[in-house]
Design a protein around this nucleic acid. Structure first.
Lengths: 347, 347
DNA sequence: TTGACATGCAAAAGCGTTTCTGCATAAGCT
DNA sequence: AGCTTATGCAGAAACGCTTTTGCATGTCAA
């Protein structure tokens, strides 16, 4: 009973040839539905799992997918620095493995080299920036691409999945307005990743609609210090804001530090919200209200699409938008809630 | 020039058979060093990369390695919750890929199921606990195992790599003593993972040597709330400590919150240090002094050993200990350093 | 009836490695 | 000199699957 069961065993059990089994399982060849179903049932019953290596070898694929993060010169950061990416990677890895592919993470610094070395069957590019070199490389080699976040100068032919940042910003701004904020500022990095553009555009649109003056501070980096600097410039300026929305969780933590440095009470005198939930955002003092993204689903969908493309399956639609949700915490909520309460509810 | 070059091409270029190429490249068979070197050189020149799938297929392996985190019933947590694990996973993945293996992360909740499903060639078990079920499963199936952290009831035959916690605790305690702490407490989780045992033992030993009374608080969970509770019990007790060493970064953040809740100045009245450096520890207020581990090296070494075992290479020694280092930050250092200074040096 | 064509399936040829077996030739012994 | 053993290498099978090709049938129109 413990014997390895391969396609041969399934064929024998179903009383057909291995060709037929392969065809039945992969929706190829000419087979009546009866045979197809019967074979599938037998395979299922026997717990047949195709050998991934044999499959890839015969199929002429490498069985490798790559994940690269798009990079602008000076905005360098480590992939794992952000919970969002860590999560995305984790789920993408699992999703790929489930379908018999391995996911290789291309270190940002040497993305192209890695891509060349492993020659993947397909690639995910995270937060692509127009003119990104890995993107160019992949296109030139004809390697299928799915991006998470759109390529701004891309075409309708592109495959991508994206967070619904447009709706997300509005959700956060509405929340801030609802808790009484009147002078809401935005802290965002430079960069032409689509999410930054979306956030900036969403903010501008919302301000225009609500007749609120725009206050935008550009963060010089994407980590805490960048948020700190941007926030200081806002707080020290004339007519400082009573709320700040930071486009990244770590920027928001920097904002919190800046508020502390200037003795500005949060949320009393300044409300702070961030895009992307994370452990750090939850653990911050006070805990940060965030726009919760869904890296798990982004990762899964991107991998799903990519593998379909690699295997020649029709992919429709080519674009997927994943909803977000506002997670309200103390940094924007009225009274200074009790630390204990938060901790208790955390159990 | 662009043609795919396989073992056949190398054989042709070197004027030998493919058998010889395979033998030369894998240190098998009977070949004079001359031939071996010549073949290798040709392979190198041609940029030959063996096809991973063909290799695994022929070798009868799956090409998959699994990574599971050992788990005690109630100490459940998400893998990615800790920077240490995230880092470990990242580097392990890369190291595996470099040698033609894919690393599957087994979700803690369903580790056994995953292991069964993918039937890996070998497995890494992180922080094994005596009696862990994945461990039992792997042993019973005869799947090679390398653990990061030792199995307490294990044997000398076990393969493991571990952080040098014994030296690490001493380093931190020495540091705390050096900055003036007299009543140093330990906050550690329950659990029989070797690092917890090491930390507790190291602490006891150090206290005995220095004639300091032991103050140990056991954290009910491994996250912030656990640290909070443990710290509160210490701070509210008779003769509260003037320094706390927390065995995990997130526990330490809980300790910080507790100090804040009790209006105890850090580092003025209480010095706080943690094991494991992380982004959260750096971003904490005040930034935490930590014992920096080396997940990158742990991951690499573990994978290296594991693949050697899988491929039948002699592995010596079976145990590897990776050094740690104390990273001094404000939470234990004298004057309240300037936030600005920290941020500036962060650039 | 008889060819033309569709249908249902099997045989067999790969895919790129590893490894077992075997055959020369060279070297060492009596 | 003749026999055994060691050495250097090549041929070919095997790994488990996909896919191309081809062979029987059965169906339909002429």
């Amino acid at each position: 009973m413990g014997a390895k069961i391969g396609i041969k065993e399934v064929a024998a059990a179903a009383g057909v040839s291995i060709t037929t089994v392969s065809h039945a399982l992969n929706d190829k060849g000419r087979l009546p539905d009866g045979t197809r179903d019967r074979v599938r049932e037998v395979a299922e019953r026997l717990g047949y799992r195709p050998n991934v290596n044999a499959r890839n070898l015969a199929g002429g694929r490498s069985g490798l997918l790559a994940l690269a993060v798009s990079q602008v010169e000076d905005l360098a950061f480590q992939l794992g620095d952000f919970d969002y990416f860590a999560s995305l990677i984790r789920y993408a890895t699992t999703a790929a493995l489930d379908r018999g592919y391995a996911l290789a993470i291309a270190p940002a610094a040497e993305a192209e080299g890695t891509l060349h070395k492993i020659s993947p069957d397909g690639a995910i590019v995270v937060d692509p920036v127009p003119g990104d070199s890995s993107l160019a490389y992949l296109r030139q080699r004809g390697i299928p691409i799915v991006t998470t976040g759109r390529v701004l100068d891309g075409s309708d032919e592109d495959y991508w999945v994206d967070n619904d940042h447009v709706a997300g910003v509005r959700g956060v701004l509405d929340h801030l307005a609802a808790v009484g904020a009147k002078r809401i500022a935005l802290v965002a990095p430079r960069s032409f990743a689509s999410y930054v553009v979306d956030v900036r555009a969403g903010y501008s649109g919302w301000c225009a609609e609500h007749g609120i003056e725009e206050r935008v501070a550009t963060a010089p980096t994407v980590t805490e210090d960048g948020g700190f600097e941007a926030a200081i410039s806002l707080l020290d300026g004339p007519d400082p804001p009573d709320a700040i929305y930071a486009a990244l969780d770590r920027l928001a933590i920097g904002v919190l530090l800046a508020a502390n440095a200037r003795n500005v009470d949060v949320p009393g005198r300044l409300r702070v919200a961030a895009c992307t939930d994370s452990v750090a955002a939850q653990a911050a003092r006070p805990p940060l209200t965030t726009l919760g993204l869904n890296p798990e689903r982004i990762g899964r969908e991107a991998i799903g699409m990519l593998i379909d493309i690699v295997e020649g399956v029709e992919v429709e639609p080519r674009h997927r938008i994943v909803p977000t949700r506002v997670i309200e915490r103390e940094s924007t909520l009225g009274g200074a809630a009790q630390e204990r309460a938060r901790l208790d509810s955390n159990r």
